[in-house]
Design a binder for these strands. Sequence first.
DNA 1: CCGGGTCTGTGCGGCATCGCACCAAGGGGT
DNA 2: ACCCCTTGGTGCGATGCCGCACAGACCCGG
Lengths: 265, 265
Amino acid sequence: MDSGAQRSARSGRKSASGVTSPHPDENHLLAALPVEVRERIFPHLQLYPLPLGKSLYESGASLAHVYFPTNAIVSLLYVMESGASAEISVVGNEGLVGISLFMGGESTPSRAVVQSGGHCYRLSGQRLKEEFNRHGDLLVLMLRYTQALITQMAQTAVCNRHHNIDQQLCRWLLLSLDRLSGNNLVMTQELIANMLGVRREGVTEAAGRLQRLGAIKYRRGNITVLDRPALEKLSCECYSVVKKETDRLLPYPQRTTQRDTLKKG
Amino acid sequence: MDSGAQRSARSGRKSASGVTSPHPDENHLLAALPVEVRERIFPHLQLYPLPLGKSLYESGASLAHVYFPTNAIVSLLYVMESGASAEISVVGNEGLVGISLFMGGESTPSRAVVQSGGHCYRLSGQRLKEEFNRHGDLLVLMLRYTQALITQMAQTAVCNRHHNIDQQLCRWLLLSLDRLSGNNLVMTQELIANMLGVRREGVTEAAGRLQRLGAIKYRRGNITVLDRPALEKLSCECYSVVKKETDRLLPYPQRTTQRDTLKKG
DNA sequence: CCGGGTCTGTGCGGCATCGCACCAAGGGGT
DNA sequence: ACCCCTTGGTGCGATGCCGCACAGACCCGG
């Protein structure tokens, strides 16, 4: 296991064909770690597939790993007794799944579901805690990320209260877009409806309006964003509040420098 | 300043008349600290009044102190550009106001407003960080509390999406009740409406229904809970999810033992 | 005891979303 | 080439909340 993980974590970034292959630095948190921490942690990272719909943890279940997405998106979802659901927040390459591991609770009353397939690097909870308990840069980084996550949750609450489906859809598309490369999203309206906690038909109508405005193009489980500025204009303030706060708390590291450092090490 | 603070923090708990006077242990977090931490921190606690409506921090502003409520309730509130508002979570004697101080962000995009007057103990951010950076019990406790707070925010988001005003009012009354002694709440329907992010009239109608059911008695800014079990039955699952998770993460310490320890120390 | 401000109760039209039912249009598998 | 299942579009009445307007109830201070 570990040998495979090492291979994965250390493998080059681009194949000969130019297709991007995974690298831990695609996750912003991993990329932001200083050299010494990287050297301790990276050997224990496992490349791990995140197929659409996979659950990373269930409500109340103990976690064995934390997950650092690279090109996947994971939704933290609360499913009610009635079966209805609502997305609490979303995690992509800017963050990690499993904060309850280091926050001390070991579990949370929500689920983590892959909303857009891809890969992540996972790390055993034990390894993470070891590093966390050194009380160094990793702790500081994890806590800052957690605060960004808190901001997102708070804003989700506000948005659910005050904004209509059109605005929320825009916010959601933008949040997803920020976590992927390109301007294409592969997801059904049904999925989006579950995330926003609204009817599928509501999403159909909102998406139809956005399409008529030329902001997006919808084609059977495939959304192409044509006019991102339009989406930003149509979105409520919630998107920009979350975006600004995330950028403030987690300034994107100088990745090329980091890469170089890794190579030198 | 410090001398006054010491006097307050060490002062007895009951006056001769039997009226309860403040003591840091009324805050569960402070009460849960082990002796050594208490001895370092308690001398720096300042008894601090929290009159109704006071703002402990504004959106984006840096914090100088953290606040441990004893018999007051503070709402973390987001106020939108339009002026509409929504409560993100509530803090009473189970918690503290100002997590962004130790989470690393120094500020958050929300306000903290006193929703029910009383007192708290405040501690300078510097002192808190000093203790936090010892990476001892205080850190663990703060993080566990933060996770409880996260649960509350998440559940607020869910509740805002899926539950009607009646259910939300019940949830809100119960959350407030848990943070006060007695079964009496002093607050106008207007205030509650601002917290829930709904119309004042909506609260009037919901409260009227609760009153007709005999669950509460409403009298001009004064709510008396007559039948708490009824409220719990009428509330959505959100209340119990938050309650259970808070209890799990922050088991209420044996206060008498703690008190004795303090006296011995 | 009276007046003015605050708080609460009520009615009405409007609107967004819901729940349901159904149809249309892909598009993949055999 | 066909079928079938998934996905997306549409129409309906019902409902819960909003915005507004206004009246009554309470309470404090003069």
